[in-house]
Amino acid sequence: MEIAFFLMADKMTAKNSFRMLAASCIAAVLVFGSATTLPAQNVVVMVNGEPITNFDIDQRSKLTQLSSRTTPNRQQVLDELINEKVKIKEGKKFGIDPSAADIDAAFASMGSRMRMSPDQLEKTLENQGIRPDTLKRRIRAEMVWSNLVRGRFKSSLMVSEQDVRAALGESEAKSGENYEYQMQPVVLIVPRSAPNTSREARFKEAEALRGRVQSCADANAIFKAMPNAAIRTAVTKTSAEIPQSLREILDKTPVGHLTAPEITKQGVEMVALCSRKPSTADTPKKREIREKMSAEKFEKKSKEYLQEVRKAAMIEYR
Results as ranks from 00 to 15, higher is better:
101 A>E: 13
232 R>G: 08
240 A>G: 13
131 R>N: 14
120 Q>V: 08
111 G>E: 05
304 E>A: 09
300 K>D: 07
265 K>W: 03
239 S>M: 06
63 L>K: 07
72 P>G: 04
1 M>W: 03
172 E>Y: 08
55 F>Q: 11
298 F>N: 02
141 A>R: 01
302 S>K: 05
313 A>E: 06
117 S>L: 10
270 M>N: 01
237 K>Y: 10
280 T>K: 13
4 A>N: 07
165 R>T: 07
256 G>L: 07
185 P>V: 07
65 Q>L: 05
162 Q>W: 00
124 T>L: 15
245 S>E: 15
257 H>G: 10
64 T>F: 13
122 E>R: 14
183 M>F: 02
225 A>E: 13
309 V>N: 05
163 D>H: 03
307 Q>F: 08
94 F>A: 08
259 T>M: 07
105 A>M: 08
1 M>C: 07
122 E>Y: 00
17 S>I: 09
290 R>G: 10
180 E>F: 00
257 H>Q: 15
309 V>Y: 06
303 K>C: 01
140 R>Y: 05
277 K>C: 00
1 M>P: 10
136 K>C: 06
26 I>W: 02
282 D>S: 09
157 L>P: 08
68 S>Q: 12
190 V>D: 03
216 C>D: 11
62 K>Y: 04
18 F>R: 05
250 L>Y: 06
22 A>G: 14
203 F>W: 09
200 E>M: 13
48 N>I: 08
102 D>V: 04
294 S>F: 12
107 F>A: 02
230 A>R: 15
3 I>K: 12
229 A>K: 01
208 A>N: 12
244 Q>G: 04
49 G>H: 04
302 S>A: 15
6 F>H: 03
177 E>N: 11
175 S>P: 00
44 V>P: 04
39 P>N: 10
81 L>Y: 04
44 V>H: 04
142 E>S: 07
44 V>G: 05
77 V>D: 03
133 D>W: 04
280 T>H: 03
145 W>H: 02
218 D>M: 04
244 Q>E: 15
131 R>M: 10
153 F>P: 05
166 A>K: 09
138 R>N: 13
129 G>W: 02
82 I>T: 08
231 I>W: 13
122 E>P: 00
171 S>T: 12
168 L>F: 14
108 A>T: 15
153 F>K: 11
310 R>C: 01
98 P>H: 03
211 G>C: 00
197 T>A: 09
68 S>D: 11
59 Q>C: 05
306 L>A: 11
129 G>T: 04
247 R>I: 02
314 M>P: 00
59 Q>E: 10
265 K>S: 15
251 D>I: 03
